[in-house]
Simulated assay, not measured.
Amino acid sequence: MRTDFLKVEGLEKRYGDSVVFDHVNFGIAQGEFVCIIGHSGCGKTTILNVLAGLEAASGGHVFMDGREVAGPSLDRGVVFQGHALMPWLSVRRNIAFAVRSKWPAWSAAQVDEHVQKYVELVGLGAAIDKKPQALSGGMKQRVGIARAFAIQPRMLLLDEPFGALDALTRGTIQDELLRICAETHQSVFMITHDVDEAILLADRILLMSNGPQARVAEIVKNTMPRDRQRATLHHEPQYYRIRNHLVDFLVARSKDLSHGRAPAVPLEVSPGLDPEPPAAPLPTIPPLRRIA
């Protein structure tokens, strides 16, 4: 039985008479990686901001380790869509600023040793004294990830951090994120629009119905092995079944749910465990004959 480290109960957000989302309920276990997917306007970023304590909900509660979230805290690290680095500070000093906020009594040597550890973790040791304008977009996002990990948060919140990157850079940072999370047993809540990214990274995937009045319509359990690799993901026998389920939801079911046309399904589903149809026999190919 899973014990939830973070628990969301009856979360609701209103702007005047407009209901962005309501009756949002889910939990995240310690060390679990959860992605949330849904169309623009369903309130994904607002949910993340509520979890971070950056925005107040109109109703409902968020509990982390049994305590209600009532504001920002260094127990929760956030990586935004933009890198959000201070342009006048080097990589070293950008991360050191966060580290000193978490451990104000540390000496300069302790802070610097800690900073170097996390800069090396994201593969930026050679750029530690460069300022953001001297870095590529992918390198800036790595600094943002290093800064979030450096404060050793109990929960990491990622708001589409790779959305603006090219496919090659995005893939490299996804691999780095998987490796770091495996090493640190980090709990993660991540927003993404990329179905393949969710399948690669997440243990469970939350599917939001369309707004207004959106809600978590399904929670899909990723039944593929946890040590999955990006390069071989499409060879996994369960990959296409899970992917098709997610795409079908985004293309059709999310809209039908918002109009009350879709049939009810269990909130948590495991599409990868459905029995496979029997494979059709392969055609027999006659042997090649040598022509004189």
Rank of each mutant, 00 (worst) to 15 (best):
D4W: 06
L6H: 01
K13D: 06
R14T: 05
V19C: 14
H23E: 15
N25W: 06
Q30T: 03
G38F: 06
G41L: 15
V50R: 02
A52M: 11
L54R: 12
E55N: 11
A56F: 10
A57Y: 01
R67K: 13
L74W: 11
L74H: 13
F80E: 07
H83A: 15
A84F: 12
R92D: 01
R92H: 12
V99T: 02
S101Y: 04
W106F: 09
Q116R: 02
V119R: 01
V119D: 00
E120K: 10
E120A: 08
K130C: 14
K130G: 10
L135K: 02
S136F: 11
G137M: 05
R142P: 02
G144C: 09
G144Y: 01
A150E: 03
I151A: 04
Q152H: 08
D159C: 01
F162K: 05
A167S: 12
L168Y: 11
T169S: 06
D175C: 05
C181R: 14
E183I: 09
T184V: 11
F189S: 04
L200I: 13
M208C: 11
S209H: 10
P212H: 01
A214M: 07
A214Y: 02
A217K: 04
I219G: 07
I219Q: 13
M224W: 05
D227E: 14
D227S: 15
T232D: 01
R241I: 09
V251L: 11
G260N: 00
R261C: 00
E268V: 15
P277Q: 12
P287C: 04
R290Q: 13
